[in-house]
Simulated assay, not measured.
Amino acid sequence: MKVLQALFFPPEQPGGVSSMVPYIQERFDKLNWDMELFYIPKRVRMKGSEPVQFKTFDWTVYRGNAIVDKYIQTYKDYLWWTQMRIQKRYDLIHAHHPIAGMAMKRLFPETPVIITLHSSYETELILNGKISENGPEQAFLTSLYRELEANLDLILTASNSFKNYLSKYVEEPDKIEVIPNGFDENRFRPIVHENQVPQLISVCRLVPAKGLDILLQACSELKRRELAFVLHIIGDGPIRKELEQMAADLNIYHETIYYGYMLHPEEFMPFFDIFVLPSRAESFGSVFAEAALCRLAMVGTQVGGIVEQIDNGRNGLLVPVDDAQALADALETLMSDSELRNRLALAAREKAENDFSLNRVIEQLTVVYRRYS
């Protein structure tokens, strides 16, 4: 069976699905499957010119909006690149982005095309202050879910939370299937250690949706309580300078270390004590599973896929969104109780190994793929 994994971002893109799918391909290769990866290079811009028409809605009513126009042009570019690069045929195409899914089905209508929807672009744009809620951009982007349902053979998501979100925009939500993300446990090597000063770590793209402003406020409160700590932030993004200035304004500049983008943060994470990320939204939150496999105590927010990974008080702690005081309280609880940290970290590792293993993903995808063979 010849399977094409159709990504949007190249595999070296930091975090998320782009860095996960190559491990899926590698595991299927070991099982003697014929599987390839495909994506559009970042350098391909303004090449496509084919007219775009959707079955389920008229996108042209949104024409003239910068984000919509850019999205449509990117779709055209993906069509152009795919026509240029793919000459062979596959038995199944598994897309990992709406643009990839729509392009593949348009160009190969006789081939089964399934898609895993990993996140909500419109939610990210709203939380990052790029678009207004209930505006034309949100209407356009959410209309694409029904378009995918009408054209593709199957929609998958990584969490029940995101499936519930999608149900508002499709006609048959019960047909959406959930396969949580999976991770190769061999990549994660927990290290037994005891830091004299608690070491906090957060790994994410530096955008407002990740709630790092709340984390800095919480850390400022910890310092006010005269608690020693070091906060390590791995990742880069458009608000890095703003966050650095905020740390200085909150008098925690010397307690905060910014590393920028790191290709394999899982090699670095096991040396720390507490993973914390107060996201305002997460469709799944892969970094929490990665932190769990590194055997770190975790603090997250009560949103999206995070609550499907953290059982509050059993394998981590959950706090409300945008609540710096509650976040500081949770961090202080873990910082002051090494026995609790270890107990939660061990439980987190056990759950991640059971629920988010790459072997489990391979088994579930094999069943899905063979459905179309």
Rank of each mutant, 00 (worst) to 15 (best):
R63W: 14
T301P: 06
R224H: 15
A292W: 00
L216Q: 00
A100I: 03
R27N: 11
M298P: 05
A248F: 15
I252K: 03
L152F: 08
F188V: 12
E350D: 12
M46R: 14
K70P: 04
Q25P: 08
L293V: 03
P136W: 14
S132Q: 09
E266S: 09
R45E: 14
V307M: 06
E124V: 10
L92I: 13
V113H: 05
L331W: 08
L144W: 07
F284L: 06
D329Q: 13
L346F: 06
A326V: 11
I252Y: 13
G260A: 05
G316W: 06
G260N: 01
I201G: 01
S159Q: 06
S18T: 04
M84I: 06
E133C: 06
M246I: 14
F108V: 01
Q53F: 13
E221Q: 15
S167Q: 02
V170R: 03
L206V: 11
L243C: 12
H94E: 01
G305E: 12
L227Y: 09
T82Q: 10
P265T: 08
S283H: 09
A100Y: 02
K30L: 14
R106V: 09
R371D: 12
D329S: 14
M84A: 15
R341T: 03
S283R: 02
H193L: 07
V276A: 10
H264Y: 12
S143K: 07
L263C: 11
M20P: 06
D322L: 06
A345D: 08
I257D: 01
M335A: 13
T60G: 05
L92S: 02
I24Q: 13
G313F: 04
G285P: 10
D311R: 09
D58I: 10
K70F: 07
E133T: 11
E226W: 08
